[in-house]
């Protein structure tokens, strides 16, 4: 479980723009949950997730990972990083080794695991993200864009973290690549991982996550199940987030007097409409 208590953080860039990046954040991420962290560029979401494995230290407040306070100076942050895997935005830009295999092995090797264990983990991680054994011997730079991203994610998965945090995992991918990444996230979640991912897109959150946290101007703006959050479409639009078309369609129909429950996927929408048709016929 990830627990954040009264976290504050300001960027240190001279006196001129002392913009508080994070203001009084309190959060709990339950074990084996799948959470989307939504907000604009500059809303503080990337800063927040970099706190979760000690890459940034807060000005005040505490962070606990499975009961260990990682904000305690005595905590061994390297150990924390093996429990909290962090996949950066455009992670393929960090690939560096001659082969995909060696790149994925980088994390486990840093953990000082035995050669057999490293090997086992590399194969396991590659299988999880859907990379063939043949591609493991290729240079990472020979892979396609989507494959590169998968290889980079495998590099983090090979450390077998209990918690996986991903910054804009689908950024820059085409629709097929996006679907692939979100299918992977769902698979990892099913296998028992705790997953938190950031996104600009309410649509991605609606399709993938169980819970949604909305950030605005360094604060938690809203938090709840996907259904609860999308029921507040108007508020979200006010802070400039674009709600998916389906939510807007449902809102408009409701305003016209139709009995449409809060929906956030196209399948729910068509079901709702079909139910009304069924109701009038029967």
């Amino acid at each position: 479980m990830i627990k954040i208590e009264n976290l504050n953080y300001a960027y240190k860039t001279g006196a001129k723009n002392q913009n508080q990046a994070l203001v009084d954040i309190n959060l709990e991420i339950a074990d084996n949950s799948l959470t989307a962290l939504i907000g604009h560029t500059g809303s503080g979401k990337s800063t927040l997730i970099r706190h979760l494995n000690g890459l940034i230290k807060p000005d005040s407040g505490k962070i606990f990972i499975d009961g260990t306070e990682i904000t305690d100076p005595k905590t061994d942050l390297r150990r924390v990083r093996f429990d909290v895997g962090l996949v950066f935005q455009y992670p393929e830009q960090q690939l560096f080794a001659e082969t995909v295999y060696k790149d994925i092995a980088f994390g486990p090797e840093n953990m000082k695991l035995g050669a057999d264990e490293v090997r086992r983990r590399v194969y396991e991680a590659a299988e999880m993200v859907g990379l063939s054994e043949k591609s493991l011997e290729k240079s990472p730079f020979e892979l396609s864009g989507g494959q590169k991203r998968r290889a980079a994610i495998a590099g983090v998965l090979a450390m077998k973290p209990k918690n996986l945090i991903m910054d804009e995992p689908a950024a820059g991918l085409d629709p097929r690549g996006r679907d692939g990444i979100f299918a992977l996230i769902k698979r990892l979640h099913k296998s028992g991982m705790t997953i938190l991912f950031t996104s600009h897109s309410m649509e991605d959150a609606a399709k993938t996550a169980e819970r949604v946290i909305v950030m605005d101007k360094g604060k938690i703006f809203a938090e709840g199940s996907v259904g609860e959050i999308f029921a507040r479409g108007g508020e979200l639009r006010k802070i400039g987030l674009d709600t998916p078309q389906v939510t807007r369609i449902a809102d408009k129909l409701r305003d016209m007097g139709y009995d449409i429950p809060p929906v956030y996927t196209t399948a729910q929408m068509t079901d709702a409409v079909k139910k009304i048709i069924g109701g009038t016929n029967g």
Partner: peptide, 13 residues
């Protein structure tokens, strides 16, 4: 800075 952070997250020392 970003790359250093990303590799640190993978346990680089």
């Amino acid at each position: 800075d970003r790359i250093i952070k990303a590799q640190t997250a993978r346990g680089a020392d």
